[in-house]
């Protein structure tokens, strides 16, 4: 089974970092305004930031370890999740369209995400983040080709809705 590119951890860690900074600043401001708390706002904000950062970093490592996917014969298989382990099976014939997405940080690192849409109510639930750009193009192209090839010749059973 295929793993994500290890640099995706950096992107996830940056997100955790920004989130921790925001939470820390909010915590500091709140302590500053509440009179009954006498602890220094800087200390509270700093510790909130540090705790979240450590927890987030652990989560990022575990998340990377849990993530794997595979392009199989008839289906795309994805396994992920630390607290909630989710294994998704998407038959190619159900794929409506495939996006390749590249955010600014992803672009800087040469990474790209592939998002697979189905007609299901969880439409955009299937996305593979952090692939090397060439590999992402490759996956996108493969999925696109397989989605067309997998269309059955007869009947409308393949008609998604």
């Amino acid at each position: 089974m295929e793993r994500l590119d290890s640099r995706v951890r950096l992107i996830w860690f940056l997100r955790v970092f920004v989130g921790s900074v925001v939470a820390g600043v909010i915590a500091a401001i709140v302590t500053g305004f509440v009179d009954s708390v006498t602890v220094s706002p800087l200390l509270v904000g700093g510790s909130v930031f540090a705790v979240l950062l450590v927890l987030g970093a652990i989560h990022v490592v575990l998340r990377y370890r849990a993530w794997r996917f595979e392009v199989r014969e008839d289906t795309l298989y994805i396994e992920r999740g630390v607290l909630v382990n989710v294994r998704t099976v998407v038959p190619f014939v159900r794929v409506q369209h495939v996006d390749a997405r590249r955010g600014p940080i992803e672009r800087a690192l040469g990474l790209s995400s592939v998002v697979v849409y189905t007609a299901g109510s969880r439409g955009a639930d299937v996305s593979i983040p952090g692939l090397v750009a060439e590999r992402a193009d490759d996956v996108q192209e493969t999925l696109r080709r397989l989605a067309i090839e997998s269309e059955p010749e007869t009947g409308d059973a393949g008609d998604a809705v």
């Binding site: 909630v84 998704t88 639930d125």
Partner: peptide, 10 residues
């Protein structure tokens, strides 16, 4: 059926 998802929380 569009997708089949197996889900397991801790």
């Amino acid at each position: 059926i569009q997708t089949v998802i197996r889900r397991q929380t801790v």
